[in-house]
């Protein structure tokens, strides 16, 4: 078990130079700022993501010209980031030892009332060489967020992947198809309620050479 205490408000470290710049431009749009092991991240409401991304790319002081990664996290209704609620998860350590041996039968915590997903963006500026992470919480019943393809075209495939594996719709995306899995796939496999051993129905082959369906006798 770790000996490090979670950062409390009183002993919060100084803001990094990057965060000072980001705050100067975007302070009203930033819900929250956290820092862990030198990684800066900001939390943004999902309605504002397009505006924030535009400023981050175009401001010469920030100049985030390279979108590295788009992905999502399925928090399964947990309040927010785990570092703030260590005590609850420490309790889980105790139960984990009694879990069945097969790892794929791991139990999930109870689903909470909070927005279920978070969409995560990783950015880097190749001129100033600083990195930033943006997080947007997205609720389960309306999993939609604006697409960043107008700002960085490279978001195209990354958002397709996130749609494929997490089922989050990116509005304004030019071509939102599944990218890894086939179109008939049911569900989104990286969601926590999709078990590792869950199976898919077998799809009948349609195409050249397919046999006629057998008639009932």
């Amino acid at each position: 078990m770790s000996t490090e205490a979670p950062p409390s408000d009183a002993e919060k470290p100084q803001l990094s130079p990057l965060m000072v710049k980001v705050n100067a431009r975007l302070a009203p749009l930033i819900l929250e700022h956290r820092e862990f092991r030198g990684d800066d991240r900001i939390h943004v409401a999902r309605e504002n993501i397009l505006a924030v991304a535009g400023v981050l790319r175009d401001d010469p002081e920030l100049a985030f010209d390279l979108l590295l990664d788009v992905t999502a996290i399925d928090y399964y209704g947990q309040p927010d980031d785990f570092e703030l609620r260590r005590e609850v998860w420490d309790r889980d350590h105790v139960t984990m030892r009694r879990l069945p041996r097969r790892r794929n039968l791991m139990a999930l915590p109870e689903k909470g009332p909070h927005p279920r997903f978070a969409v995560v963006y990783h950015l880097i500026s190749t001129s100033h060489l600083h990195r930033l992470r943006i997080k947007c919480r997205v609720p389960e019943d309306d999993p939609r967020i604006a697409s960043l393809t107008p700002v960085w075209p490279g978001a195209n495939w990354l958002e397709r992947e996130t749609w494929d594996l997490y089922g989050i719709r990116f509005e304004g995306h030019p071509d939102l198809r599944r990218i890894y899995l086939y179109d008939e796939f049911e569900g989104h496999p990286l969601r926590k309620d999709y078990g590792k051993l869950d199976e898919q129905p077998i799809q009948a082959y349609v195409g050249p050479g397919a046999k006629e369906p057998r008639r009932p006798e």
């Binding site: 078990m1 770790s2 990684d39 991240r41 990664d69 785990f82 992470r133």
Partner: peptide, 9 residues
């Protein structure tokens, strides 16, 4: 082994 809760890239 138990890491501290948090996220890194």
């Amino acid at each position: 082994g138990y890491p501290p809760a948090g996220e890194v890239y």
